[in-house]
Design a protein around this nucleic acid. Structure first.
Lengths: 108, 108
DNA sequence: TCCATATTTCAATAATACTTGAATTGTCAA
DNA sequence: TTGACAATTCAAGTATTATTGAAATATGGA
């Protein structure tokens, strides 16, 4: 993953609403959630939610697909794992440190 | 880890200079690096670097100790692992998904 | 077609974060 | 105790990001 994308992803997650939205989608799994459901569950105004969903989408952390008049947002686990991996790359120059294990949530 | 600390940590990492500094310290391992060395390696003005080191310290991602007239900064691996773990908690409600593996870099 | 619902875009304001140079603090060595 | 070096704090200006209400777009059903 390139540095700019990493920064974009971290920025996306570094905000209360977006962090909650992202975690809700991580928990929801492949089923995903609509903005309506997210807004109700987390008590967020539609405009505000839309703004933050766009930020997360733009970072590549979540992906929308249309289903009739609903949109369904889902977490992109590959993207998340790439992000987590970036932060620990070359940890301790490999010296005093086990090879970094693969990032979490392998099967997603 | 509490939400506010997670956000603080993600915000700290969501910035080009701080991300580079943090990764440099992750690579450096237990030896750590001084602001002087960091500033030279990454070509950052002292004032700017100091500001960003404080942000990372305040987030708990790095820890300074004094050694004579130098400070030595080191990455706090436990903190980093707690952060990574937070992002994948309860992934897919455990359903279609392996138990999240422990975060990276176990022995640090 | 026309209306209602789901969601987004726009524009303005409010809040927060980044950079820089000058001044300050702490430590060592002569 | 004075000078030099390492690093930080302060204060100011600039830039980026978040929030809100009003208006717009897209879809499905009467």
């Amino acid at each position: 993953m390139e540095e700019q994308k990493v920064i974009r992803s971290l920025s996306a997650l570094a905000q209360e609403i977006r962090l909650r939205v992202f975690r809700a989608l991580v928990v929801a799994g492949p089923e995903g959630m609509t903005p309506g459901a997210l807004g109700e569950a987390l008590d967020i105004a539609p405009t505000t939610l839309s703004f933050h969903l766009k930020e997360l989408s733009h970072a590549g952390l979540i992906v929308p697909t249309r289903d009739g008049r609903h949109l369904i947002y889902r977490a992109d686990y590959a993207q998340m794992n790439a992000l987590l991996g970036y932060l620990t790359e070359n940890c301790c120059r490999g010296a005093s440190c086990a090879e970094p294990t693969a990032p979490v949530c392998k099967t997603c």
